[in-house]
Write a protein that binds this DNA or RNA. Structure first.
Length: 521
RNA sequence: GGGCCCGUAGCUCAGCCCGGUAGAGCGGCGGGCUUUUAACCCGUAGACCGCAAAGGGCGGAAGUCCCGGGUUCAAAUCCCGGCGGGCCCGCCA
């Protein structure tokens, strides 16, 4: 808003006209949405008007004033439509209202569908009701809201202005719905696991800690639902999943955010191969449902990418991929040679497990080259403490990761159901933690010992396959967005100093205190 | 944790390198225009503070160009520190 030293606030002009939406208007009868209206009257020719009247409501996104005719753009969240306000149609009184409109105001309008001489489908407005006003100026129409800081600070404006972000929100909802429908049709049920846990686990990450006053103890925010969903398997829920919020106290970048959503699926009597089939079917099915085809075109910062989700996806063992994509042989190489390869690739190694080094090399030379949906299989056993050793060679785990457009989207394996080996792996993880603790402080994470989980396995877990798929990352890839924060509805920003309208305009505060008798009741 | 970049009117930005009274477009306000599509044309206020206000006012102040210091006759501009945001690297998906 303007500073009020030279101008009366627009609000008072509405009051003069006898309009105060906060006092007068509590609802508005909408009888069609813009998308449907446009479809129904697509046949209208230039200059033609329909006879039926419709009421629609939404936000004014543009105003073009031409004297006794005004064109506006209304966004009702399904689509936008041009409104035509004509003096001769509206009459003196309503014309004053149109005169006061600003971009950002919320209105309900009633009128007849028409097509202008220039061919623009419109609503010829016969009645208008102001449902809410904006007290702040909206961004410039051409650039919209471009400042990145403001976009995250005022995400509601980002939603209004940035179609790609808006679409991503809808895409994400539809993908999740598609996953749920798909799993439901196969007999899976969703179970919500605790977000507050006494022992964190199911992934290797630094947790958030918080205080639970009821029990006077420290608890961890869930870093993954895995160990609880597998307890469900032990509990004879043989097909379970959860679309779970996970918290990991790590840094933020274009691919990571401390709070994120993933779907984890556990399927008893199946192994990793079954799970890969399920995953490629589930994701490709969702892509087809949401985007209409298995093959989709992505615009990533002007770079055109075609992604083909039609099953089956490429499968390649991790060590083979390093050779295929990077021309480097790592299979059966001694540790010293692996370290030398890492050094030449200028990879900093501070965790000297063989598998970790191979994984690093993989991330450096292979990941930036995988564009089409791909399963990378056979991960080193020593960095997979919850996975089952590969049946043909115990140096590997029956584990796969899903890569799409150079991003790790998911991770799955034949679940380790042997409580004795599970305990042994946890013990090893503990030792690693101790070994590197003083050297690296918080830099390297290991899976903590979880005896309660081991006991659950001791009651007998069937052979089971599991997978986790990052919903934000998948949505980000499918929406052509470059940073994960763009698909997260609201991200954290530091507090900022600013004044509210009430702080700036005591006269308006006084008006409402009087009108609503706020000081009396 | 390390490196780099950005912060100027409600919005989008220029000005900074090379110090000399703070700019444009959009938006606002006033006027014109009954078929526009970032409409157009004319005029105008607006960057900090205070006071007035049924109507576009009055006054202060060389003064917050994110904030605080410094250099200088003079700082939006140069230097140092901080705050906020972004990008890259390390770590987690």
């Amino acid at each position: 808003m303007k500073t009020m030293s030279t101008t009366q606030h627009r609000f008072w002009k509405f009051v003069e006209l006898g309009i105060d939406p906060y006092l007068d208007v509590y609802r508005y009868d909408v009888d069609i949405d813009v998308k449907m209206l446009k479809n129904r009257y697509s046949y209208l020719g230039k200059g033609e008007e329909a006879q039926e009247k419709f009421s629609i409501a939404g936000r004014i996104m543009g105003l073009r004033r031409h004297g006794k005719i005004v064109f506006a753009v209304l966004d009702d969240s399904t689509d936008t439509i041009q409104l035509v306000f004509r003096y001769d149609v509206l009459g003196e009184k309503l014309w004053h209202v149109v005169d006061l409109l600003n971009v950002g105001d919320i209105v309900g309008v009633k009128g007849r569908p028409m097509r202008t001489l220039r061919g623009e489908f419109s609503l010829l407005v016969e009645d208008i009701k102001v449902l809410s006003i904006t007290w702040r100026d909206y961004p410039e129409k051409w650039h919209g809201l471009a400042d990145i800081e403001k976009r995250y600070r005022m995400r509601y404006l980002d939603f209004v202005y940035n179609q790609k972000v808006r679409k991503a929100m809808i895409n994400m909802y539809r993908i999740e719905k598609s996953f749920r429908d798909f799993l439901d049709s196969r007999g899976f049920i969703e179970i919500h696991t605790p977000k507050l846990q006494p022992i964190y686990g199911g992934a290797l990450a630094r947790p958030f800690t918080t205080k639970m006053y009821a029990l006077d103890r420290t608890v961890y925010l869930s870093i993954a639902p895995e160990t609880y969903l597998k307890r469900c398997i032990v509990g004879n829920f043989f097909k379970v999943y959860e679309i779970a919020v996970c918290f990991r106290n790590e840094d933020i970048d274009a691919q990571h955010y401390p709070e994120f959503v993933q779907i984890e699926i556990y399927w008893a009597f199946a192994d990793w191969n079954d799970m890969m089939k399920l995953v490629e079917e589930m994701i490709s099915n969702a892509v087809k449902e949401v985007f209409g085809d298995y093959v989709i075109d992505i615009d990533r910062n002007g770079e055109k990418i075609e992604l083909d989700f039609k099953p089956p996806w490429k499968r390649i063992p991790l060590e083979d991929s390093i050779e295929e994509y990077g021309g480097i042989k790592v299979k059966d190489k001694p540790l010293e040679e692996l370290l030398e390869i890492a050094r030449q690739l200028s990879i900093k190694i501070d965790d000297f497990r063989r598998g970790k080094i191979i994984e690093k090399i993989f991330e450096k030379v292979v990941v930036p080259k995988i564009v089409q949906p791909t399963f990378v299989t056979l991960f080193p056993r020593d960095i997979s403490p919850l996975a089952r050793p590969y049946r043909d060679d115990p140096r590997y785990a029956e584990r796969f990761e899903i890569y799409i457009d150079r991003l790790e989207i998911g991770n799955g394996y034949s679940e380790l159901n042997n409580p004795v080996v599970q305990y042994y792996f946890f013990k090893k993880e503990e030792e690693l933690r101790v070994k590197y603790a003083d050297k690296l402080s918080h830099e390297v994470e290991y899976h903590p010992m979880d005896k309660d989980y081991v006991r659950a396995l001791e009651y007998g877990m069937p052979p089971t396959a599991g997978v986790g798929i990052g919903i934000y990352r998948l949505t980000m890839v499918l929406s052509g967005l470059n940073t994960i924060k763009d698909v997260i509805p609201f991200t954290i920003v530091e507090q900022e100093e600013f004044q509210t309208i009430a702080e700036k305009h005591q006269d308006i505060v006084a008006y409402y205190v009087e009108k609503l008798q706020l000081d009396k009741y």
